[in-house]
Simulated scan of single mutants.
Amino acid sequence: MRLVLTSLFSVALGALGTGTADAPPTPPPPLLPYHGSADQMVTVTAPDGASTTATLIAWQRHGSRWVRSLGPFPAFVGAQGIGQASEATSHTPAGVWTLTEAFGIKPTNGTRLPYRQVTNSDWWVSDVKSPFYNTHHSCAPGTCPFDESAGEDLGEAGPVYDHATVIDYNRSPVVPGKGSAFFLHVSSGSPTAGCVSIAAADLDAVMRWLDPADHPVINIGLSPQ
């Protein structure tokens, strides 16, 4: 579910802090103002729109202040950088979206998000002609009610999906062709098809930190110049 945005990256320096009293000042996250109740935010910032690398930081809201909880962690984004996502590109979508569920080939890493352990009968549908487009669907290979070549078999993806968090881009409402299957997942050491990826240990820490009660969101964009 995309949150309502009002203007591009702006935030007061005085509204931010760091996780420890003796830590050096941390640059503010490039917050996109939104109407929502998030008390946790994961920021993913790249130096420019064509960059395939970014920095991920996890922030906790304390009153009017955002305090760094985890990171900075190096991240990979789409092979075409950050921008307008679609089924025809490998952009990572710019914007703010909720983080409401997780999955993985391995058992849960302790995340508090609803977690699904996937097999080769778990798919994320990218068939733009299917009513199941950009949703999870369970079906045995060869029996699915959509074009399986235009879907992603989550259980067959390998270590990158050992654990993952779903980025709620283009989910409410779902617009065919606008892009599907965007996740925060384990890094392969190279740019992605549009997802955000970080090292496995870093991802485990972030996923354990995410708390549904704090309505976490991910904020993806460019570093302030």
Score class of each variant (00 low, 15 high):
residue 17 G to N: 07
residue 27 P to Y: 03
residue 207 M to L: 15
residue 144 C to S: 10
residue 189 G to H: 14
residue 133 Y to K: 13
residue 214 D to T: 10
residue 147 D to W: 03
residue 58 A to W: 02
residue 61 R to E: 06
residue 167 I to C: 04
residue 101 E to M: 13
residue 178 K to P: 01
residue 23 A to H: 04
residue 143 T to W: 00
residue 119 T to C: 01
residue 44 V to K: 03
residue 106 K to T: 11
residue 130 S to I: 08
residue 46 A to Q: 05
residue 82 I to A: 11
residue 105 I to E: 11
residue 122 D to F: 06
residue 208 R to S: 04
residue 12 A to P: 05
residue 173 P to S: 06
residue 161 Y to C: 01
residue 125 V to P: 11
residue 123 W to E: 10
residue 123 W to V: 04
residue 193 A to L: 14
residue 114 P to R: 05
residue 91 H to G: 03
residue 202 D to V: 02
residue 34 Y to H: 14
residue 213 A to M: 06
residue 44 V to E: 02
residue 168 D to E: 15
residue 62 H to V: 05
residue 152 E to I: 10
residue 60 Q to K: 13
residue 42 V to P: 04
residue 139 C to E: 13
residue 189 G to V: 14
residue 84 Q to P: 02
residue 174 V to D: 06
residue 103 F to D: 02
residue 191 P to R: 09
residue 205 A to F: 04
residue 180 S to I: 03
residue 189 G to R: 14
residue 216 P to I: 02
residue 92 T to G: 03
residue 117 Q to E: 15
residue 63 G to D: 08
residue 128 V to A: 14
residue 68 R to L: 08
residue 35 H to K: 04
residue 17 G to K: 10
residue 120 N to E: 12
residue 90 S to G: 00
residue 122 D to A: 09
residue 42 V to A: 05
residue 165 T to L: 03
residue 105 I to T: 14
residue 83 G to S: 12
residue 115 Y to S: 01
residue 180 S to V: 09
residue 78 G to H: 01
residue 13 L to P: 00
residue 44 V to S: 02
residue 186 V to N: 12
residue 158 G to C: 08
residue 199 A to R: 10
residue 146 F to M: 06
residue 28 P to Y: 07
residue 159 P to M: 10
residue 13 L to N: 13
residue 56 L to K: 06
residue 179 G to S: 13
residue 58 A to N: 02
residue 11 V to D: 11
residue 8 L to S: 13
residue 107 P to V: 02
residue 107 P to M: 09
residue 188 S to E: 13
residue 27 P to N: 08
residue 9 F to M: 07
residue 180 S to R: 11
residue 207 M to K: 05
residue 88 A to R: 12
residue 62 H to K: 00
residue 192 T to K: 09
residue 110 G to S: 12
residue 64 S to N: 12
residue 201 A to G: 09
residue 89 T to E: 01
residue 113 L to Y: 00
residue 155 G to Q: 06
residue 104 G to P: 00
residue 181 A to R: 10
residue 27 P to F: 05
residue 38 A to R: 02
residue 130 S to L: 08
residue 52 T to Q: 15
residue 71 G to E: 09
residue 104 G to D: 02
residue 194 G to M: 07
residue 18 T to H: 14
residue 135 T to K: 08
residue 7 S to C: 07
residue 130 S to W: 09
residue 62 H to S: 10
residue 138 S to T: 13
residue 142 G to P: 09
residue 184 L to R: 10
residue 16 L to V: 14
